[in-house]
Simulated assay, not measured.
Amino acid sequence: MNFNTRDEARNQCMLSGPLRRRGYDWWWHSFSARDVQTGEERAFFVEYFLVNPALGGERPVFGQLPENKVAGRRPSYVMVKAGCWGKNARQLHRFFGWQEARVRMGAPFEVEAGDCFASETELRGSVEVSAAEAAAHPEWMCGAGSMRWDLKLDKKIAFNVGYGTSAPLRAIKAFEMYWHAQGMKTQVSGTVWLDGRRYAVDGPSSFGYADKNWGHGFTTPWVWLSSCDLTSRITGERLADTAFDIGGGRPKVFFVGLPRKLLGAIWHEGRGFEFNFSKFWTGSRTRFECREEDERIVWHVEQDTWAARLVTDVWCEKADMLLVNYEAPDGSKRHNRLWNGGNGHGRLQLFEKRGRELVLVDDMDAAHVGCEYGEYD
Rank of each mutant, 00 (worst) to 15 (best):
E176Y: 11
V127D: 01
E120K: 07
R170N: 02
K212F: 00
R102L: 05
I157P: 07
E110K: 07
A158H: 00
E120L: 14
T165D: 06
Y209N: 11
L153W: 12
P138H: 07
L194R: 05
S189R: 10
Q99G: 10
G164E: 14
A174I: 11
F109K: 02
Q187D: 13
A200H: 02
C116N: 14
E100G: 14
C142M: 10
E139L: 06
W179G: 04
Q99Y: 06
G143P: 06
R102C: 05
G190F: 00
P108V: 04
M141S: 09
S206P: 03
S130H: 09
N213F: 12
I157Y: 13
Y209V: 05
R170F: 04
A167K: 15
G196Y: 02
P108L: 00
V103Y: 03
D195T: 08
K156I: 12
A210C: 12
T186Y: 05
V127T: 09
N160E: 05
G208D: 05
G183S: 05
A181K: 00
M184L: 08
S119C: 11
G114C: 09
Y199G: 11
W98V: 01
K173P: 00
K212D: 09
F117Y: 12
S166K: 03
S119V: 01
R197M: 15
E110Q: 15
